[in-house]
Design a protein around this nucleic acid. Structure first.
Lengths: 148, 148
DNA sequence: TAAAAATCAGATATTTATGTCTGATAAAAC
DNA sequence: GTTTTATCAGACATAAATATCTGATTTTTA
């Protein structure tokens, strides 16, 4: 099986999207979020905790605690979330798994995949949560239970 | 962790590339191939067996047996190998994992990722083993032990 | 015909990714 | 201050991907 984002990363993006849409409101608990997104709250909690350690999300303990976005939405790029959860290996490693692959000794797919990979990286670097949110609020209201 | 091809698929592509370069010669045993590519022969054997069942590779039992490419090199596209090993899910599924994502109700990344994903699919569909081989023989001689 | 060397099918083992649990700590409500 | 309800850290469990093994079959060579 091939994936572009891991399950963890998909979830992280979904959860962060959810928090973005509701940024003005109070903190959201892991169980609250898990009711919206169809994923186990323990898993969501773990993922959000790691985003806290990366400074993308902020958390608050105690009775009215939970998670929320830590910065202005236009300062968080999608690539930041991907980097925090999955790492950026995919953008450096040879797509065919050849150790010695580099510019001087490119593998057969080096140039063609390299171009697409760079475009993907750029896209994820250009898009911030704010950009996403704009698109989201316009027309993506019934795609999922959370109405993200 | 993110990947574009699974380990299995990387290996399959490497092995098939190796066979392509040496297509004129006789059948290559799994252990012979595993000496060139740095992967365990049992695993290579398993992968090649599945390519046999997909008609991409042909095998021969017995003392002088082994594996070889089953068709003219210009009739095998990279996407055929990817499809056989990893499947084509990645080219259909929502990149954010939203169930209801589609053209009418696109997720926030639907269009941008969709474009890149289609370009990747097209690239893999256009490139045949023959195309790859040409590039390979020109300039990729010391990238790996197999000199693929 | 017997021995050697290969694929093949399916079971098994190992590793990694995904998912769950437990007890500790912190903050708010009473 | 006690109870409630949240995060947090780290251990634990399960599932999936990766890797290995075993015995059967096939084919060549001697």
């Amino acid at each position: 099986m091939t994936v572009i984002f891991s399950k963890k990363c998909e979830l992280a993006l979904q959860a962060v999207l959810y928090l973005s849409v509701n940024k003005d409101k109070n903190f959201f608990s892991a169980s609250g979020i898990s009711e919206q997104i169809k994923m186990p709250k323990e898993f969501i909690a773990k993922i959000l905790q790691s985003l806290v350690s990366h400074g993308i999300v902020v958390s608050k303990k105690g009775k009215t605690g939970g998670f929320n976005i830590n910065k202005p939405l236009n300062e968080i790029r999608l690539i930041d979330i991907v980097a925090a959860v999955d790492g950026l290996e995919i953008f450096h490693k040879c797509v065919l798994g050849f150790e010695g692959c580099n510019v001087e000794q490119p593998c057969p797919l080096h140039n063609k995949w390299g171009k697409l990979r760079d475009m993907t990286y750029n896209m994820l670097s250009e898009e911030t949560l704010l950009d996403i949110l704009d698109k989201t609020e316009e027309k993506i209201k019934s795609i999922n239970p959370a109405n993200i």
